[in-house]
Design a protein around this nucleic acid. Structure first.
Lengths: 236, 236
DNA sequence: CTTGGGTGTGACAGGATTGTTACAGACCGC
DNA sequence: GCGGTCTGTAACAATCCTGTCACACCCAAG
């Protein structure tokens, strides 16, 4: 998902000893617009991370030689100033592993088997999280609708409302492009992901659910017949 | 001309040596509104892809002679500037095959047996992904009429007005060729599409609807008796 | 003034698009 | 596993759009 302004191309380091997984992850990150560095073991990963200073590292937990855990630990210790975020891949789904992973410096984890899309989303999520140290563009406000991406919260006229994940993303995208027409295709791309294979009518259904929850602010989501939808500020 | 709206009918090349599969895929793509070119082997596929420059190619991985993989590789190498996206069909479901397919230039893959519906969705997904998000000059202004293609909005003397899809396109075309005479045939071509089978009188009707909505600016759409229409800047 | 082709106007039926509802399957926490 | 929630899809209804037609009107040429 490319948010309002296209960010500079970011470098991601991917480290996994299984060639298939390495390819799969790399490819999908590339398609999402990232520049990818590949490493097939822990030592290589550590070296590349030091030399190239990627924006994020995707590490397999289990690797011969230096494990992902150890790499993460070392990275965390060394580069104190601007720590590189870590996304951990793990074949084991036991809770223990997860917690250990997080404690030791991973910022998030994904258990195998994972969908390519999930990886990309997580990476983007972590980067977004890192990008905004203090109140960047993670606060959207249009009319009486407030969206807080950090807290993942929506308030209408100050009152917090419950939104599902999809609804939240859809609303966010519409709001950050307030006033501009969004075709169903664009919405599918940016809300559901670039590799989504779903019907455009699904957008309509979610728009309806959105309007339902928006209540009095439902009018702010306009239908542009034949083209798509658009969020508008209230006339007031 | 492609407004930020409905693209012209897109051509898809489908290549498979099994007649049944070829028919099935072609038929479903046609029903989804695509124009379909068929090829029953790799050589034919390559030739058609070069000559016809389809918007997307659906390739069977296994074909006698030139395999889908080889075709994809060749295509990828040749048309560097505007690469044609490839959807690969494969009978093998092994993960390795998939990754290999993707690395060698396919943008997505579907394993047999697949549902016709899935093919169509994937194709649409890939095309969606490929679409250039940023158009360029998207602001037109003539006299008191402003057309904003991004917001998909028309303003007269600053006030936003509602226009239907056809009206919007017609107005856009007239405005971007302001001052120049447009025959009904040209308008049919550029507003309705190159293969429209529509009476020229329809243009008149839409011109009328346009004038109606333009209100005070209706005079800016001139009739050139015997030839067509023309938009002019107000005398002021 | 008359005529004939070209254009404006209003109505309309069919089609396309969107709103709405229902539902089955996926997913998740327990 | 088991309930409950979330989601994508399908089906139907309501609405809007649109191409066409018939007819009125206008203009220019005779």
């Amino acid at each position: 998902m490319s948010l309002p302004t296209k960010p500079a191309r970011k470098r991601i380091l991917v480290a996994d000893d299984e060639p298939d997984v390495l390819s799969l992850v790399s490819l999908n990150l590339q398609r999402a617009g990232f520049e990818v560095l590949k490493a097939s073991d822990g030592e290589q990963a550590l070296r590349l991370a030091r030399e190239e200073e990627p924006a994020l590292v995707v590490l397999d937990l289990m690797m011969p030689g230096l494990s992902g855990l150890e790499v993460a630990k070392l990275l965390k210790r060394e580069v104190q100033t601007s720590r590189i975020p870590v996304l951990m891949l793990t074949a084991k789904s036991e809770e223990v592993d997860r917690i250990v992973g997080l404690e030791l410096g991973a910022d998030d984890y994904v258990t195998k088997p994972f969908s390519p899309r999930e990886i990309v989303l997580r990476v983007q999520s972590i980067l977004r999280r890192m990008e905004t140290p203090s109140g960047g563009d993670d606060e959207l406000k249009v009319g009486c609708i407030q969206v807080d991406r950090v807290r993942h919260e929506v308030r209408i006229e100050g009152k917090p409302l419950e939104f599902t994940a999809t609804e939240f993303k859809l609303l966010s995208v519409l709001m950050e492009r307030c006033g501009r027409l969004q075709s169903r295709e664009v919405l599918l791309n940016d809300v559901w992901g670039y590799e989504s294979v779903i019907d455009t009518r699904t957008v309509d259904t979610h728009i309806r659910r959105l309007r339902e929850k928006l209540g009095p602010a439902a009018d702010m989501v306009e239908t542009v017949r034949g083209f798509g939808y658009r969020m508008v500020a209230p006339v007031s």
